[in-house]
Amino acid sequence: MIRLSVPFRQALSRLTLPVMLMFSLGLVLIGRADQSLAGHLRSGLDDLLAPAYQLVAGPVQTVEHGGGVIGNLFDLEGENEMLRAENAKLLQWQAVALALEAQNDALKASLDYVPQPTPKFFTGDVVADLGGVYARSVLVALPPTGLADQSIVGAIAMDGRGVAGRVVEAGSRSARVLLITDLNSRVPVAIGAAGAPALMAGTNGPDPALLYWAPGQPPAEGAAVLTSAVGGAFPPGLPVGIVHYNAQNDPVVLPLADLDALRLLRLFAYASNEPVLTPIPAAKPGPAAHSPLAAAQRTNH
């Protein structure tokens, strides 16, 4: 240990706070100047934390899901009753779905419909709920294999029922998903059977707002909200939610995804060899050569 004189040490200890303050203020400036720095730091930290969170999140979820074997014995009767009722209802829906599928197939056959290829997807556990006060995001632990060839930044995250968000930062073991309720989330959507265009904007609350719908045709209460391919960020037709008018009589979207209790997310990575989602002006050899969409378009020609 270095021996320092007492006054010098006192001066040093008095200086640490201002020095650290200057350092932090500098960091704020650097973070503003270089937006990718925070992203790099964050994905590095997430990669470090994801395995640890994954280790702990399993038991936490087990506890949350009830008292285990003994606890489940007590309400077997009631649960069986409920499951039977639910099963009967599901069987009805299955019949409906089969009929619709047959009809859909017939219609597609008569239209010479070319199905879109299924994108590559990964399923990951939601291991941490790392939203801030003004940011809604979750941390997803990625499977260790199958990601070497491409980045999944921009991949679309869906739970069992609907779109939950998009991947904004990804490392090798973890991905951060910005939820559709985040203030910075903007999703082009199509409303109802007619596919009326609108923009779904996160409000930091539980239900995102609907903006920019055609003034003459307000979205109908209960209409389905699907993603739209406008802007090229999302593929068309993914289920998002249902239109609802809130207490202020503004249209909002009730998300289908259970955003408060996400457990598993599927991350759909639309790779560069997938069909181009929006037409891009063809002749842009210069800076556009690096963009995956441009590359995809070249391969399509």
């Binding site: 650097i30 930290l45 790392l130």
Partner: peptide
């Protein structure tokens, strides 16, 4: 800041 997605250093 990194956990919360707040601006870096805030």
């Amino acid at each position: 800041d990194l956990l919360d997605m707040a601006p870096l250093g805030l």
